[in-house]
Simulated assay, not measured.
Amino acid sequence: MLLINHGDMPWDQLTEDEQKEVAADYEAVSRTPGVTPGEWLEEPALATTVRVEGGRTLTTDGPFVEMKESLGGYLFYEADDLDAAIALAARIPAARLGGAVEVRPLK
């Protein structure tokens, strides 16, 4: 699984041409054989964090922790090996725009 973490560069700071390039890059990654695209997530401020303590369900608006990088989306990739997954992760625009892509094996 590739977890796409957005950095602190907001989309609206990119020029229109840069936005088109980023969108085309994400589309190309999605069409890569072995990739099952996931879904984009809303911003962390819209999250609700759920915990159960002493049998009571507790909710908190927003993410639990402040972090520079927030999960923005994900995809699944049936890779031959870790090197192939890393190569694909390097093609994801968030990795070059101040974010990161976490490659995590599934059980």
Rank of each mutant, 00 (worst) to 15 (best):
G54P: 08
E69T: 06
E39Y: 10
A24W: 05
L88R: 04
E42L: 02
T49C: 05
F76L: 12
A84C: 04
T32L: 06
T48G: 12
I4D: 00
L106M: 15
Q13C: 09
V101L: 02
L2D: 05
E39G: 05
E39D: 15
R96P: 07
P105R: 09
A24P: 01
T57S: 09
E66A: 10
E16D: 13
T48R: 11
A28D: 01
G98E: 07
E66Q: 09
T48Q: 14
E16M: 01
P63Y: 00
A100D: 10
V103R: 05
L46M: 13
L46W: 10
G55E: 13
T57F: 08
D83Y: 00
E39V: 11
G62A: 15
R31N: 05
A90Y: 01
G72I: 00
A23V: 00
D12N: 14
T57G: 03
V52R: 07
G54C: 07
A89V: 04
R104L: 01
E53Y: 07
E21Q: 15
E53G: 06
T49K: 09
E102A: 08
L3A: 15
M1F: 13
L71S: 09
P33M: 07
A95M: 11
T32Y: 03
L2M: 14
K20L: 07
Q13V: 14
G99Q: 03
E78P: 00
D25V: 03
A87I: 05
G98D: 04
P63S: 10
I92Q: 01
G38I: 10
L14S: 10
T36V: 12
L71Q: 11
K107L: 15
R56W: 04
A87T: 07
V52T: 11
K107I: 10
T59K: 08
E69S: 06
Q19K: 13
K107H: 13
D80N: 05
S30F: 08
D25S: 09
I86K: 09
E66H: 06
G62D: 13
A28E: 03
D25E: 15
E43F: 04
V103K: 02
A94G: 11
F64C: 00
T49E: 08
T57Y: 08
V103W: 07
L58H: 06
R104A: 01
D80M: 03
P63E: 09
D81Q: 04
F76I: 05
T48W: 03
